[in-house]
Design a protein around this nucleic acid. Structure first.
Lengths: 209, 209
DNA sequence: CACTCCCCATGACAAATGTCAGAACCGGAG
DNA sequence: CTCCGGTTCTGACATTTGTCATGGGGAGTG
């Protein structure tokens, strides 16, 4: 399967905030002789800087990183380095994240439960210009569907996410308290939750916040 | 540094639900010739079974795993295989977890941000019978201090964690609603939170739930 | 142009929640 | 033995939240 001679190797950027995983991953991928890791990063901004400097063929990004998450990095990369394919790797595959990622032009989306061999194959697939989405995550995303919440409802729910009282949410959103309660109420009923806190939890699980 | 001849290698059990990381870690640790990975597991119960079957010298456990978390596994291991040292590796180092881990007889506690070389050294340290706790996590744990909550307050706060209304908590805890509200109220005031949901968040951050 | 959907607001009511005082029981510390 | 703190309860009260009806304005569609 691996190329024997003149084909140039796929140049990779690896971004993950966990040094242990990043290093281990780099070591494993280096075993494949058609792949070469040309840069590593621990944060979103760092990944962006590294990408600019090294112009990799494929960027393998962790979804959760300090600074800017994988999807944000992918969005920036799309305009700055259109030739660079992006592959997102994640621990917690929330359905909504997949959708956001695909909208950001990400070419691949896989959970960290795959094996290294599998990942190497997927990197090749993505590099060849194809897409790859983990079937399990895809199924979850389809069954979860789109967020039924409007923009404002989502925004208010986000403000409510850390347990802030209505008064504080209203202030932060520059709305009246009544309006905030209306939005929360409709969000709660749309999600079929018992109260707004359960609603926050549900929306989080589905990746809608 | 690595042993040249007759010293038997340290036998390791690796447990992490993320195949990618577990495999990569195994590969990296295999590079050290005084370490050998004798078993791998993806869940808590599996880790326990593997430990019984292979009797490793050191168990390297992820904190969050399906089935039973690292601390629970460590507790069981302590009685079943007293000779087996336990090292916990984690992504999100919550102060309270460290304390619980140490109480469970864990010998080492490190974040996944360390490098593989460092991890190998720490494995040797732990195997030699010493303890190792990441200085950063230790500092956090000290500054966060002990939980000010009583057992019941903690229990009720846990029931409240997923946004359940008081009536439901009362039923699940077999208490009157008034009592539940009293416990919640005192927990909220002890934590200096605005309401119980913020209290839950705070307690979570500090690892007290 | 009517219709619909989202945005924003108000007011009023019902339900849930937070707070407080008081009181009984139990176990451990002094 | 007495005092203290944790557990459990009740009842009462103020506050917060959830729900609903109703209204106006703007954007987009048939």
């Amino acid at each position: 399967m691996t190329s024997a001679d003149s084909v140039p190797p796929v140049r990779l950027l690896l971004a993950d905030d966990e040094h242990l995983i990043r290093g281990a991953l780099a070591a494993l991928l280096a075993l494949e002789d058609d792949l070469v890791v040309v840069a590593e990063a621990a944060t979103g901004p760092e990944a962006l800087a590294m990408a600019r400097a090294h112009r990799p063929d494929v960027a393998v990004l962790d979804l959760q990183m300090p600074g800017a998450d994988g999807v944000k990095v992918a969005t920036s990369l799309r305009t700055e380095l259109p030739g660079c394919r992006v592959l997102i790797v994640t621990s917690h595959g929330r359905p909504g994240h997949l959708k956001r990622a695909l909208e950001a032009g990400v070419r691949g989306f896989v959970p960290k439960t795959v094996s290294a061999q599998r990942l190497a194959e997927i990197i090749r697939t993505v590099h060849a210009g194809n897409r790859y989405v983990d079937p399990e995550l895809a199924a979850d995303a389809i069954s979860a569907g789109d967020s039924p919440l409007t923009e404002r409802e989502t925004e208010i729910l986000e403000y409510a996410a850390d347990g802030a009282p209505v008064a504080e949410i209203a202030e932060r959103a520059a709305l009246s308290q009544g309006t905030v309660r209306n939005y929360l109420s409709s969000a709660v009923s749309k999600l079929g939750a018992e109260n707004r806190h359960a609603a926050v939890r549900l929306a989080r699980e589905r990746g809608w916040v």
